[in-house]
Amino acid sequence: MTNANASALRALHVPGTPLILPNVWDAASARAVRDAGFPAVATSSAAVAHVLGYDDGEHTPVGEMMAAVARVARAVEGVPVTADVERGYGLKPAELVERLAEAGAAGCNIEDSVPGSGELVEPERQAEFLAEVRAAAGDALVINARVDVYLYGRGQDVRQEAVARGRRYLEAGADCVYPILASGEDEIRALVSALGAPVNVYLGPRTPGIQRLAELGVARVSFGSGLHQAADAFTRGMIAKVVEGRNPF
């Protein structure tokens, strides 16, 4: 399988010139990102779940999640879309690939923890899952392998475990490694150096700025559900003014 959008998305992962992905939650936010000039669009599973009325952690029915991804892809037709699919919503790898293709996605995030449990999946088991996704997709899907040890690692050298997992996932066919919540310049620099492949960093309050991440060799920067949380807080603030009888504008 081949996919022009997947090829374009893969080519955007350049260490030192990172792909910036302000994660979206619906067609309108996707168009806002596209209209701002970003060359690709990424969804956030947590943000999409919230607007659909579900909690994050694979509580969203897979049909509804894929329909949301499809709406985003239709809204920005011609722009590569990468979908956050948590750990696949219980789908077998081949079916996951098929559903992503039907939705128009050129890439996906796949995490290595059991959604909602805080438990890490055994790395060999996760590598096997990723290898099966790669085998089913060929080059038609950009796989961003999320590594959750900075979230849930306990009693271990977190960096060493992140590198070990990332290397396994790259060998299994992942295009990029996403050690979510890794922060601090020394930590990010060490991960980039040790992995020797595109690294995705989550941009949060404790993360270096985008320019500094570029200097550290990062290839992709994500915002997770942060933008949606900010938009939601702003909306709630306006509604509070209405409740008080004030003009929210």
Score class of each variant (00 low, 15 high):
55 D>I: 01
91 L>A: 12
51 V>K: 04
136 A>Y: 00
162 A>R: 10
192 V>M: 10
76 V>W: 01
248 P>A: 10
53 G>H: 08
247 N>R: 09
192 V>W: 03
79 V>R: 00
132 E>W: 01
124 E>L: 11
232 D>H: 12
6 A>M: 00
235 T>G: 13
71 R>M: 05
221 V>T: 03
112 D>G: 05
156 Q>C: 14
180 I>G: 05
100 L>H: 08
3 N>Q: 06
96 L>T: 01
29 S>G: 07
185 E>N: 02
39 P>Q: 06
39 P>T: 04
147 V>I: 11
4 A>V: 11
211 Q>R: 15
194 A>H: 03
26 D>W: 01
171 E>S: 10
78 G>N: 10
167 R>Q: 15
196 G>M: 13
134 R>E: 05
122 E>C: 03
54 Y>E: 07
36 A>N: 03
36 A>R: 13
170 L>G: 05
1 M>E: 14
220 R>V: 03
161 E>L: 03
29 S>K: 07
142 V>T: 10
129 F>K: 10
245 G>W: 06
14 V>N: 12
14 V>M: 04
126 Q>L: 14
154 R>K: 15
230 A>K: 15
44 S>P: 14
96 L>N: 06
87 R>I: 04
181 L>F: 11
1 M>T: 12
242 V>N: 09
243 V>Q: 12
103 A>P: 02
47 A>Q: 08
107 G>N: 04
54 Y>K: 12
181 L>D: 04
21 L>G: 05
91 L>E: 15
231 A>K: 10
6 A>Q: 04
141 L>N: 03
142 V>F: 07
133 V>W: 00
201 V>D: 02
171 E>I: 09
218 V>W: 06
136 A>Q: 12
199 V>C: 15
37 G>I: 11
26 D>A: 05
180 I>F: 03
75 A>W: 00
237 G>I: 00
69 V>R: 00
85 V>R: 11
179 P>H: 13
229 Q>V: 12
64 E>Q: 15
141 L>H: 04
78 G>T: 06
17 T>P: 00
26 D>E: 04
11 A>W: 05
219 A>F: 08
61 P>A: 14
169 Y>I: 10
69 V>C: 05
192 V>R: 03
155 G>E: 14
23 N>Q: 14
